Simulated scan of single mutants.
Amino acid sequence: MLGTNNVKVTATEVQGENQMLLQKYTIEEVEQIGEGVNMVCHKLNYAYAVHFCHGGGSTKTFMVSMTGVDGTKVKAVSICHKDTSLWNPKGLPFVVLNVKPGTTPICHFLQDDQIAFLPYEEA
């Protein structure tokens, strides 16, 4: 699906005692780590390690370093979908952002139980 066997695997990393605490964060650094197709796997509620995986389409992928007000450090994976023209116009991103499909990229963070697979190109 990614067009290569040379793949980078990444996930959101949370370091701190209050990993589930909803709080404000300060973004310290944003680094683009991929562009093009990707595959994201979401953990399912099952007795074994089972994930639902799907293609992300044309995307840009970023690693975002940030710190919470309580000192929690997070390196979060952010996926930006470049083409949303085929998405449901009543979907949550369009309602919250008050935009229409295909007019702007939609970006979101991956939770720490999700995995992103990206084509890896050595520099």
Rank of each mutant, 00 (worst) to 15 (best):
M1H: 13
M1Q: 13
M1V: 08
M1G: 14
L2Q: 06
L2N: 04
L2D: 12
G3T: 14
G3F: 10
N5Y: 09
N5F: 04
N5E: 13
N6M: 10
N6Q: 14
V7P: 02
V7H: 11
K8N: 02
K8E: 15
K8T: 07
K8F: 15
V9R: 03
A11V: 01
A11C: 06
T12C: 09
E13H: 06
V14F: 10
V14L: 10
Q15N: 14
Q15Y: 04
G16V: 01
G16M: 06
E17A: 14
E17P: 03
N18I: 10
Q19S: 14
Q19P: 12
Q19D: 15
M20P: 09
M20L: 14
M20Q: 13
M20Y: 13
L21C: 08
L22I: 10
Q23M: 03
K24N: 10
Y25G: 03
T26C: 00
I27K: 01
I27P: 00
I27F: 01
I27S: 05
I27Y: 02
E29S: 04
E29D: 02
E29P: 02
V30T: 08
V30F: 05
V30C: 02
E31T: 11
I33Y: 01
I33C: 01
I33W: 00
E35H: 10
E35C: 08
G36Y: 09
V37K: 09
V37G: 12
V37I: 10
N38P: 04
M39L: 14
M39D: 10
M39A: 02
V40Y: 08
V40S: 07
V40C: 07
V40F: 06
C41Q: 02
C41Y: 02
C41W: 00
C41V: 00
K43D: 11
L44V: 01
N45H: 01
N45A: 04
N45K: 07
N45P: 08
A47D: 13
A47R: 13
A47L: 07
Y48H: 06
Y48V: 10
A49T: 04
H51I: 00
F52M: 15
C53H: 00
C53E: 09
C53S: 02
C53W: 03
H54A: 03
H54R: 10
